[in-house]
Structures are given as structure tokens and as C-alpha cells.
Design a protein around this nucleic acid. Structure first.
Lengths: 206, 206
DNA sequence: CCCTTTCGATACACCGACGTATTGAGTACG
DNA sequence: CGTACTCAATACGTCGGTGTATCGAAAGGG
């Protein structure tokens, strides 16, 4: 169920794995994790169930692999976005938020999947540990960048961990609201505002 | 799938309905919505599938009914808690938070169910409307109480809607964190802190 | 160039859950 | 008291998904 290790993978298998992983996300998103079946995923990937079972032991294992891949990609994307912003002017907290926040995806399909995975993980101590570890990795990857950007806006962070947790909560909480009412610009505006307020509250002038 | 209307219900039917609704929540919480079956629920309620199908057209319909019932109960509980706090001293924002926040349940089983309902609702426009309506009802029920409590702590609220949205986001976001790591008092502490910060940021001295 | 290994497709047997149609018991009402 | 009706239990037939066992075909190594 866990076991993401597989170091010496032959060419053919790697390709099949990749396609299955790729097909899984949309299926999970459309049907919901609990309602997704091995067959649906294989069909979309263009394989039969035989291929699935020679690559994964269970749907849970596949799900976990998808989730790990996706969150790694997310880290990479956000880091790239951060790097791209390095040269621009960031006079204050609001400027940082206006620049950085749009780089963090609020993606409907992904949100559904991760909400269901969260619920699933809350039922399973093993998965829960994997999940908190992944969250920590994200925070660890992003906080140094945050520190630097805020320093350039003239702010220091007394308790980076607390700020990290607050930002994650803010992101998760406001994402739902934005997705529930996606055409209402006010909701998005309030998301940005809340982000500014949180950062301001958890930092102090240099 | 929607249709919650049923005004003239006979005695016997009402009892069966109630038992089925009661049995459904724990089943959904344990198995997940997608993996729950009509049979599991009937078994726990002490009926056969025949009873189910003469009371509900589908699992979806039952799910919606459960969710509506539970969120109504939640509103009532929180309101009762608020009322109980009316006489005590509330010198500042932190005192308000320390009093009120523990009254808002962070319940693992319910969180799982509502996370899955959220994901499900994001897939279904009809359900989405039901859900936003319910959220609004919650906010509407609680904001007046919030206004009064904060007034007693010497604070006014320039934009109550914005504060409401921020508090909901804060609650949702930090709930996950607390449930993921329930034995870590720091996480709970940070939840309270964030609440204080948000309220402070969205109110001003009278 | 063959021989071994690996991978994915097919076939198979097996539930578990579905929804409906029918039946019988309990209830209300004239 | 009898009739009409309502509701839950039972009894189907069906479908879709599961996981395993087997087999042929490609790939890779000596």
C-alpha cells in the first residue's frame, strides 16, 4: 500500500506506469476517489487491467503515487514562479501577495482529489503520516523563498513555522470558497486580502 | 436526487427515515461516501434494503438529507454555546476567542463526511447551490452573535461579510491541520492565534 | 543470435451490490 | 368489523468490478 520505491525500472514498465498515473488523476477527479475503479483508469490509459496489476498492488497505492507526483510538481511550479519574480520590485506586503498568490494554483479537479484523499488519510494512520510529511516538505521548500521575498519588502518573520501553518490554512480555506463561487471576483479579492492580513500579522518591520 | 420535500409523513415512515439517517452518518464517516453501500446503512439501522428504497430514491438523496440535518444541528449547537457565553467577561479579542472557539466542534467524523460532500458538490451544480446556501445560513446565524460579542470586547466590524468569510476559511483550514496532528497542542494553539489575528485585523477599536 | 526475463493481454471464477416486483403484515378509516 | 392502503421484507435477475492464473510477445544480455 505504501512502498513508492522502484529504482531499476525497465523502459517499458516506466512508460506504462506513467500513462496509468496520468490517467488516474482525471478519473479520480471526475468520479471521486471512492467511486473510481481500476477499469476506468485502465480504459483511459489505453491498457487492460492486467497492466495495472503488474504495476500496482492496489488502487490505494496508485492513488498515493499520483498524489506524491502531483505535489512534487506543485512545489516545482511554485518555486519556478518565485524565481521568476526575483527581479521585480516588491515594495510592500501587498505587492508580494499580488505577485506570488496567482502563481499558486487553485485548481478545481486537484482540489476535489486532494480533499477526498485528506478524508481518506484521516481514516488511515499510515497515509496520514505520509501526508503530513508531504505537507512539511512543501512548507520547507517554500518558506526560504517566502523569507527572502518578504525581506525585500522590508519585513522579518519572527516565527516562520507559525506563518507557514497560517498560510496553508488560509490557502486551503479560501480555495474552497473560490471554487464554490468561482465567478465572484469579490471572493477572490477577499482571499488576497486575507493573505495580506495574515502575512502582516505574522511579520514585523525590519 | 434533490427533493427534500415530504410534508404529510405517516408515523411509521418517519421513524424508519430517522433511523436510516442516524445510521448513515457513521457509515459514511467510516467507509467514505463513495464506498458506502445501501446495505451497510440498512444493516446498521436494522432494516433491509426494501425499507431504504421505500424511503429514499438513492444514496445521494440520503446523503443530502444527512448533511442538511447535521449542519442544522451544528448551527443550533454553536448558537447555544454562544448564548451560554453571554454573561461572562470579554475584555479583549483573545478572551472572545478563548471562550468561543472551543464551542465550535472540530469533529473528525463530521469533517470527513463534509470534505467528501464538498468534493461531491463541486461536481454537481445543484448540490453546490445547496451547499453555498447552507454556508450562508451558518454565517447569517452566527454573525450577529459575533458582532455582539466583539462589541462587548470593544471592537466594531467595518465589513462583517469579509470577516465571516475569513473566519470560515480560518476554521476550515486549521481544522484539517488539527485533525491531522491531533495530539500536538502547538497546532491547536496556532489555530487560536490565527483566529485572534484575523479578528483583530478585520475589526477596529470602538 | 538465441535464451532468459519481463510485461501486458486474455480468460476465468467469484462476489457484492444494485434496483425492481411481489408479497404479507400492520394501520387507519369509514 | 371490514376494507383500503401503506410500508417493509423477501426474492429475484443482472451487471460490473475484483484479483489470479496463464500465455504469447517483446526486450535485453551474453
Amino acid at each position: 500500500m505504501i512502498e513508492p520505491a522502484a529504482d531499476r525500472v525497465p523502459r517499458r514498465r516506466a512508460e506504462t506506469r506513467r500513462r496509468l498515473l496520468e490517467a488516474a488523476l482525471p478519473v479520480f477527479a471526475e468520479a471521486g476517489f471512492g467511486r473510481s475503479t481500476v477499469e476506468q483508469i485502465c480504459e483511459r490509459a489505453g491498457y487492460t487491467r492486467g497492466a495495472f496489476y503488474s504495476n500496482f498492488a492496489s488502487l490505494d497505492e496508485l492513488f498515493l503515487a499520483v498524489w506524491e507526483g502531483r505535489s512534487a510538481a506543485m512545489i516545482a511550479a511554485v518555486r519556478a514562479a518565485f524565481d521568476a519574480f526575483t527581479p521585480v520590485d516588491l515594495p510592500d506586503v501587498r505587492a508580494v501577495v499580488e505577485r506570488v498568490l496567482p502563481a499558486i494554483p487553485v485548481d478545481d479537479a486537484w482540489f476535489r482529489v486532494s480533499a477526498e484523499f485528506t478524508a481518506h488519510a484521516l481514516r488511515n494512520p499510515g497515509l496520514r503520516r505520509v501526508m503530513t510529511a508531504r505537507e512539511e516538505a512543501i512548507a520547507e521548500a517554500l518558506m526560504p523563498l517566502m523569507v527572502e521575498l518578504l525581506a525585500r519588502a522590508g519585513r522579518s518573520i519572527p516565527d516562520p513555522v507559525a506563518l507557514g501553518q497560517a498560510l496553508v490554512a488560509m490557502h486551503d480555506g479560501t480555495s474552497v470558497q473560490c471554487l464554490m463561487d468561482p465567478d465572484n471576483p469579490l471572493v477572490w479579492q477577499r482571499r488576497r486580502d486575507l493573505c495580506v492580513q495574515v502575512i502582516t500579522a505574522y511579520t514585523e518591520e525590519l
